[in-house]
Amino acid sequence: MFELIGIPPQALFGQLLLGLINGAFYSMLSLGLAVIFGLLNVINFTHGAQYMMGAFVAWMLLNWLGIPYWGALLLAPIIVAAFGMVLERLLLRRLYHLDHLYGLLLTFGLALIVEGLFRKAFGSSGLPYENPIPGGQRLPFMFLPNYRAWVVVASLIVCLGTWYMIERTKLGSYLRAATEKPELVQAFGINVPRMITLTYGFGVGLAALAGVMAAPIYNVNPTMGSNLIIVVFAVVVIGGMGSIMGSIVTGFTLGLIEGLTKVFYPEASSTVIFIIMAIVLMIKPAGLFGTPK
């Protein structure tokens, strides 16, 4: 087989696939953050914890109730979203009239509580989650595990579906209108507070869905969310939160770049996204797809 600058193609494509999968999670998480931020003006710091909860709920459903992966894929996001909506109703709602920073601080505190409780209950070493579709395809240049292919395809469908719903449907137009001018939308008889709750639930559900999808790839671990969310913040800063499609494209691209870095210069693989963020901020402070306010 051919070699590319001394790198066997299996390693290259393997890392690219892993990068694509990471990118899928970046996309789904930054998409949820952007949707929530658009309407609530809150950066949801609990997002990482909710992603982790998605993975844990899937694990509990499997090990305690015997509900397999495919059931968890539907149930876990609903359960975690319900939890999120309760938080929004009870706590977050009371902070909308204040500086946005308080929303950040509150959700940061909630993230600490959730992570702390899961660490106490499950330890921090991580639990395995069985791969629901083992095996894979032998392609001419690499071995493609079935589950990883499924994750890439499914997350693309979810991301594009979200984009379609927000940009092309009536419901989405309400959402976009409420993002622009909530008072006016309310005057037209639309229940904006309920819409806010549901939007938050939707964003949280996306995070939990990403968590369920991540469970068979990585171990289910209480710290999986907090490590990821900081990278996702950098992704959000790079892409800017103005555009839904922008979030998706940025997420997948950065995942791929990270995968490539792992092949060619592994020392920088954990910092490359932050370096790109710094460069983008120097050149285009509003982010690649953002609009200066």
């Binding site: 009371r94 308080y102 505190g109 600490l112 509580i113 702390g116």
Partner: peptide, 17 residues
């Protein structure tokens, strides 16, 4: 020690609210 994170988070929530 294992509750430090939870307690800190709870203080955040109480102070902000």
């Amino acid at each position: 020690a294992e509750y430090v994170l939870v307690i800190q988070g709870a203080i955040f929530v109480v102070v902000v609210m």
